[in-house]
């Protein structure tokens, strides 16, 4: 049997670059999937829900990670999930859930940081749906849930897709909160941005450059997709 220092993909031998890349995709995908239900709910309440008690509180809490230094978010998650709090101890001792220094922990950190980007774009996309259509649905007796899934989501799908892509990009690039919650353990929690930092720290410029170019390339692709999708919304609205 052969030594496999980087056995991320089991039988396939992976170098540090490939394992950081795949881990990043895994973390970002999990992060955006995790935040999606909360993100959709918040987008709905803030975009078309109208005024409700405590609206500003939801708005503030959802937007907070966008404004706070990521290290504050990371530290908060560290306190919540670490052994220092009763919640963290219960999570670990009674449920056996360890989140610190694991990739699911990294995904939660990235998800929290990605949430505001999704909600801001998502709420705008839902708000752009013609309110008359919603009213018509309502007079025809459709439930709020039915309206949401059969009218709102299909009509704002491209906008929501743009929101999802932005959130994915944010999750992919997350550094500070992820570092604090998940450490930077090669092959386990070291995502591309963390691997880039580690490469710079150890003076490996060739590797650092490859990481940086990869992240830039992925960001360019994602932004182009966002532009394509939100552009079509704009032109569709303009034709009306």
């Amino acid at each position: 049997m052969q030594a496999r220092p980087n056995s991320l993909a089991g039988g396939i031998r992976l170098n540090d670059f490939a394992s950081a890349f795949l881990l990043s995709l895994l973390v970002a995908t999990t992060a955006t999937t995790l935040m999606l239900p909360l993100g959709l709910w918040a987008s709905y309440r803030l975009g078309v829900g109208g005024p409700f008690p405590g609206r500003w509180l939801v708005e503030v809490f959802i937007t907070l990670p966008l404004v706070l230094p990521p290290t504050v978010v990371g530290y908060a998650l560290l306190l919540i999930f670490g052994r220092g709090t009763a919640f963290g101890r219960i999570l670990q001792d009674d449920f056996g859930i360890r989140l610190l220094f694991t990739w699911p922990g990294a995904a939660i950190a990235a998800g929290v940081m990605a949430l505001p980007l999704f909600v801001r774009t998502g709420a705008a996309a839902l708000a752009s749906v013609d309110t008359e259509l919603i009213e018509v649905g309502r007079t025809l007796g459709a439930s709020e849930a039915r309206l949401f899934f059969s009218v709102l989501i299909p009509l704002s799908f491209r906008g929501l897709l743009a929101a999802f892509t932005l959130a994915f990009a944010r999750a992919l690039g997350e550094f500070g909160a992820t570092l604090m919650v998940a450490g930077s353990i090669p092959g386990r929690t070291q995502t591309l941005p963390l691997a880039l930092y580690a490469a710079v720290q150890s003076g490996d410029d060739g590797l650092a450059l490859r990481y940086a170019l990869t992240l830039t390339l992925v960001a360019l692709v994602l932004i182009s997709l966002v532009g394509l999708w939100s552009g079509r919304i704009a032109s569709a609205r303009g034709e009306r």
Partner: peptide
């Protein structure tokens, strides 16, 4: 499919 499989293994296999 390979990527998805990797996803499971990242967690368990190491």
């Amino acid at each position: 499919a390979g990527v998805r499989e990797t996803g499971i293994r990242v967690y368990n296999r190491p």
